[in-house]
């Protein structure tokens, strides 16, 4: 399965290399993608929401997934992160240099602890918890203390908890929410909630981060901040990022490659410049695409 995939990938990888020497300089031809999705399909009853979608993401890449509303982008996210069970197709992922694992039929929490994290289009924070606690929940799959530890409060579980608190706070600093750490999550303004979702996802130590419309509802200032944050995550932590986004300015300036979907199928993929000029993409968007 993998050899096939690689052959198919040769093209975008080399294209990327030309465009972006600094980034791919350290890569050799043996570099495996961190995510490879092969002919993924999803049916809802008679409706084919996803049709034969292929995708791969290289280590440290920022990839955007765009398309008109209802194109199946979020369904794609949900299939890859295990919330929906794909009808057909394969999803493979793995940290760089580690054996890859097939993610079909694996429950979402296993996928998260394997190292894929996500945010949600319609924000899904734990509204009864504080900002800090939200991020602490993200540490759940990386911590171990159990019921007995909870009851007896032994040093191991106390240490672990303090570590969780510190780590969560550090992540809040990373996304710029440290001053609001004691606030209730539901009291945050919209943009801050989106950033909190990112911090929470980061708390699970992912190698691949899925952002579902992270800039939706943000003002221009916040979008700029978000863009910086995404680049920082990639550059500082080496996390590969896949994002769904409608803000074309952000997509074009941020992503290394773009996949375009329409009616559940992938209609184009490539560098931002190519996508910008792709007649099929322009048709799909009916001219509303180019506000970059």
């Amino acid at each position: 399965m993998h050899s096939e995939n690689k052959a198919e990938m040769q093209n975008p990888t080399s294209a990327r290399r030309k465009q972006n020497g600094a980034h791919s300089g350290s890569q050799n031809d043996g570099v495996q993608p961190v995510l490879s999705v092969k002919s993924l399909s999803k049916n809802f009853g008679g409706l084919r929401a996803l049709n034969d979608v292929d995708m791969h993401i290289m280590p440290g890449e920022i990839v955007a997934l765009i398309g008109p509303n209802g194109a199946g982008k979020t369904t794609f996210f949900n299939c890859v992160t295990g919330i929906y069970l794909p009808t057909e197709g394969e999803v493979w992922a793995g940290r760089q240099g580690e054996p890859h694992k097939q993610l079909n039929n694996i429950s979402p929490h296993h996928i998260t602890s394997f190292g894929l994290a996500r945010t949600f289009q319609n924000i899904r924070l734990f509204s009864s918890m504080t900002v800090l606690e939200n991020v602490m929940v993200g540490r759940h799959c990386r911590t171990k203390s159990n019921v007995l530890g909870a009851i007896f409060r032994n040093p191991a579980s106390r240490n672990e908890e303090q570590e969780t608190v510190d780590r969560a706070y550090a992540l809040l600093e990373e996304v710029g929410l440290q001053d609001l750490w004691q606030e209730s999550a539901s009291n945050l303004p919209y943009g801050a909630q989106r950033r909190l979702e990112i911090a929470r996802a980061l708390a699970t130590d992912p190698f691949l981060l899925f952002l579902d419309e992270p800039a939706a509802g943000m003002n221009p200032q916040e979008t700029v901040e978000l863009k910086k944050l995404v680049l920082r995550l990639r550059d500082k932590l080496g996390i590969s990022i896949l994002l769904i986004e409608h803000d074309m300015g952000m997509v074009m300036s941020l992503s290394d490659r773009i996949y375009v979907m329409e009616y559940g199928s992938r209609i184009a993929y490539g560098k931002p410049e190519d996508i910008r000029n792709n007649p099929q993409v322009i048709r799909a968007y009916l001219g509303e695409s180019d506000d970059a």
Binding site: F120, L125, S128, V137, G138, A201
Partner: peptide, 16 residues
């Protein structure tokens, strides 16, 4: 508590 607030989000946070 996470379970109470949002099952899907807690699963996405690695909670079984």
């Amino acid at each position: 508590q996470a379970l109470k607030d949002d099952e899907i989000a807690s699963e996405a946070m690695g909670i079984d």
